[in-house]
Design a protein around this nucleic acid. Structure first.
Lengths: 243, 243
DNA sequence: TAGTGGTCTAGACCACAAA
DNA sequence: TTGTGGTCTAGACCACTAA
């Protein structure tokens, strides 16, 4: 049983949320399984019921579990929506596809925001941005080249972190208390430039899936502008639409 | 000021939620306006803070408001979500982009379902499908080539309709009582074949946005398999992701 | 009847933003 | 320094479900 740290900066309810979510993700608890009752978790982790409920609330809101009064809390059957329209890190994405993810950091630097980037991130042109260029690998083969831009003021010192082995989302949450909860994307098909073609080990002008994504925090503030160039021959983007 | 009834069966937090939501909907509070603080509402309605927060939680989860620590709770700007993740017809889509839509029907016929198509549409191979090939125009210029497949049994006689000037969705709804409410898509970047390149008036191997879409009725029955080949230089796909 | 989640109270201390 | 939301506690009573 994982433990909850009372000294950590991470809130107790969030630690519990992660513990529970992990058990769902790793299959310890299967769809329709009964979760421990709120009272059990109160005893087990020495938390108040309100804190336990706060963790459960997150799981319910995200569709991982559902509650039945008088019966208990149960794991949801996976809906397709969760798998399709969620924000996923490259790491998660590749693992879901059964591929071994890898990352090579090609460059990292502080740059002034261009007009376009400033508009996307809702800052003034010239504002300091933390820029990272990463080559993404799947099963050792190049999959994509990503250009990431963060408003440096929001995450001072982030360029010193270990990008290759840590999820950006996780670093933002744990070290800067920034939760990325929502993103807007533009997707196009473009021909590969000479430079990208070489990095991706494909012919120039091969089709790339080009994604421009702005991710927002839970406070509606744009946090990251991400440009992804995916090999058309290796990557399919899944999504779903509703009426 | 609306009042909260302590005798009602409706929970206090829900009554408060409705009061607050109404003021947002009727425009009393505009986007970016500051809502009353939690403490104010506690005093005003004689509720505990937890109850007020529960009402706020609902508004936050539904995207009506967002919180800023140290500042207050604010009305959200209307999200683009509704415009992004909805099913839209080619017609609507082009009009939203300010382009004049047009359609040329290239072929229409009844064909037996291949293995792949049968699986997508959940029928047995060989089942009769209504197949339509359309060239889509925007401002008179080729935009995409669409291959559409419908289970003929669901919409007998549909091939006799006027495809060029009527929305398929509308025909299905009005004449066959079929509502398309949900769709799953796969999006890839592919090189244009000789044939597609000629139809689209582009160079062979130019990048195309290739979309495979299965649309489902309100009864969860797959209705249409649609393959869209969009010119990469003319079309951008918008979408949004949530945590 | 016992156990579950649903609602609600009355506090407390904290981190953060603005004046 | 003041007021805001963020987190947490230790209770309480209720409605519902299943045994």
């Amino acid at each position: 049983m994982e433990l909850i740290s009372r000294n950590s900066k991470i809130p107790l309810y969030y630690q519990l949320y992660e513990i529970l979510l992990n058990r769902i993700k790793d299959g310890t608890w299967q769809p329709d399984d009964l979760l421990p009752s709120e009272a059990e978790l109160v005893d087990q982790y020495d938390l108040s019921r309100a804190t336990v409920r706060q963790a459960f609330d997150m799981l319910v809101n995200q569709g991982w579990v559902f509650r039945r009064r008088g019966q208990g809390t149960f794991v949801s059957r996976p809906t397709i929506e969760q798998n399709l329209s969620r924000i996923v890190s490259f790491w998660e994405d590749m693992q879901q596809r059964g591929l071994e993810p890898g990352t090579k950091v090609m460059a990292r630097e502080i740059i002034p925001a261009s007009e376009d980037l400033a508009e996307e991130l809702q800052v003034t042109p010239g504002e300091e941005l933390a820029s990272i260029v990463r080559l993404r690998l799947a099963d050792g083969e190049p999959m994509s080249v990503e250009y990431s831009y963060l408003v440096h003021q929001n995450c001072l010192g982030i360029l010193d972190q270990d990008y290759a082995n840590n999820s950006l989302r996780q670093m933002l949450r744990d070290q800067f208390n920034i939760n990325l909860v929502y993103a807007r994307q533009r997707i196009r098909a473009v021909p590969a430039s000479e430079q990208l073609a070489e990095l991706l080990d494909i012919e120039p002008n091969s089709p790339l899936l080009h994604i421009e994504r702005v991710s927002y925090s839970d406070q509606d503030i744009p946090i990251e502008y991400l440009e992804i160039n995916l090999r058309g021959d290796r990557y399919t983007f899944y999504t779903e639409l509703r009426d």
